[in-house]
Design a protein around this nucleic acid. Sequence first.
DNA 1: ACATAATTGATAATGCGTTCTCATTTTTGA
DNA 2: TCAAAAATGAGAACGCATTATCAATTATGT
Lengths: 124, 124
Amino acid sequence: MNYSTKQRTVVGKVIEDAKRPLTPSEILSKGRKKSLSLGMATVYRALRFLIDEGRAVLVEIPGEPPRYESSGRGHHHHFVCNSCRKVFDLEGCLCHVDALAPSSFRVESHEIILYGSCDHCSGV
Amino acid sequence: MNYSTKQRTVVGKVIEDAKRPLTPSEILSKGRKKSLSLGMATVYRALRFLIDEGRAVLVEIPGEPPRYESSGRGHHHHFVCNSCRKVFDLEGCLCHVDALAPSSFRVESHEIILYGSCDHCSGV
DNA sequence: ACATAATTGATAATGCGTTCTCATTTTTGA
DNA sequence: TCAAAAATGAGAACGCATTATCAATTATGT
């Protein structure tokens, strides 16, 4: 059970090498460059395994398709470029945002998402 | 063009009376209580008009269906209850979160979303 | 190398939210 | 009140991401 295959290795590498969260179809096309005739079903299956093993995490942005990134990047948040639609990792966090909730609410986690133009798109 | 109908009035009232962002199906069921045999297509059409007129705004939460709330509540953010899945408005904002982005990025807006248990669900 | 069990990939099927269709009803302005 | 234009609502159709199917391929342990 749970064989080690070329395809899963490729999907894992694509995610680890990426500097930003990727959509399943981005993972598919990057994986196909690294080699072989990778199928979409295999990408989804590999993602499930990677998440189960804790090697990848789901990154959800409102109005955007689900993306996946390597786990072990620590607590961080994301920047969405309104121009190229890419999602970037941000360093650090202002964790006292939890104080925004009324005291009768119990805060377990938070998300901060910035929107704007990335360096490439705003530099033009 | 653009008639004033009972159905649009009802959808507008449902959104204005709500203390939190509502999904289209929540709007449908609340609208049907207020009266009549409201249809889902009409809800979607009414939402389009309300948004075009600037009376309603779209609220998107990762992994959640789109919700709509009355505009004119000013700048604010949201709390998602992990238990009952309802979305609540939060007062205030820590707008210096924009500083999280690298200086080469141009920040245009931000979202802060807190997750946890609402007063009702955590009180049990 | 072998037998077994898991994986792959192309495609079909699914689920679900949203939009379209169109006959009927309602609003509007004259 | 009347004719024209718009809105309604039930259901069909659509788009799209994800999952299931299944024969063929590949990994695994002995």
